[in-house]
Design a protein around this nucleic acid. Structure first.
Length: 232
DNA sequence: TCATTAAATTGTT
DNA sequence: AACAATTTAATGA
């Protein structure tokens, strides 16, 4: 039987080779890119990057789970989006040479790839597929945030959980994720800003409606399009 | 392989 | 927030 999901964690090189933006690089080009990327392990609760700091890297989540968030007045935190393995982020701030506008916090022990600004620029100058990737990524992210805005203001809790999960399973932003993601209800709560108890209720609603299957420590998406439309 | 125990996660109030 | 029930993972016979 073929083993599609290797149990041994991939090396940084293997992970990089698997990303879509690297698909048309020659070996020489890839070697150059690899030299411009390093990996760092971030423990649960640790900061992958912080708001206000100078942006010197494009960031990729190799493995783990993280949330992009920003602190509002009075110490409250607003989660902007969840980040799943295979997702890259920070290109916006990198392109505009502005300080980072959000925190990214690891919700699990995570492995993060840091690509130097130089290397990012070099890829923009040399790789068609990389440019295409960045454009699609920006566009996808834009749609995601418009949906988020609507979600925060107009939708009930069930719909917010539904959209949060739909975001997490977005095949464009997070390829390589199967239909099933190992994520506890508590973690979904962190991502949505909803209590774990309420997440539990929402998952039952969504499961009954046939959009997903909730199991111990994991969620399986059955109808991604349905989740996106839910409540809207 | 099975039984026991601890830890994590879920279900409910 | 607290508690009980359930599932998984780890351990050792």
């Amino acid at each position: 039987m073929a083993d599609n999901s290797p149990r041994n964690p991939p090396t940084l090189r293997e992970a990089l080779r698997g990303y879509r933006w690297a698909s048309d690089l020659t070996d020489a080009e890839f070697a150059r890119v690899e030299a411009g990327v390093f990996e760092r392990k971030v423990p649960h609760g640790g900061f992958i990057c912080r708001k206000g700091e100078a942006v010197e890297h494009w960031l990729g989540l190799i493995d783990g789970l993280a949330k992009m968030s920003t602190d509002i007045e009075s110490g409250k935190t607003a989660t902007l989006t969840g980040l799943a393995p295979g997702g890259w982020f920070g290109e916006g701030s990198l392109l505009k040479t502005e300080p980072r506008r959000y925190d990214v916090v690891a919700l699990r022990d995570s492995r993060v790839a840091y690509m130097r600004r130089e290397t990012f620029q070099w890829l923009l100058d040399h790789s068609i597929s990389f440019n295409r990737y960045v454009v699609i990524q920006l566009n996808e992210r834009l749609g995601q945030f418009i949906g988020l805005l609507e979600s925060e203001r107009l939708l009930d809790t069930d719909a917010r959980v539904a959209r949060c999960l739909a975001t997490l399973f977005n095949p464009v932003l997070y390829p390589g994720l199967g239909r099933q993601l190992q994520v506890s209800q508590e973690e979904i709560g962190y991502l949505t800003g909803v209590s774990r108890q309420r997440v539990n209720r929402s998952l039952k609603v969504l499961q009954f409606a046939g959009y997903l299957q909730a199991d111990y420590g994991s969620v399986t998406i059955l109808d991604l399009a349905g989740l996106r439309r839910f409540g809207g």
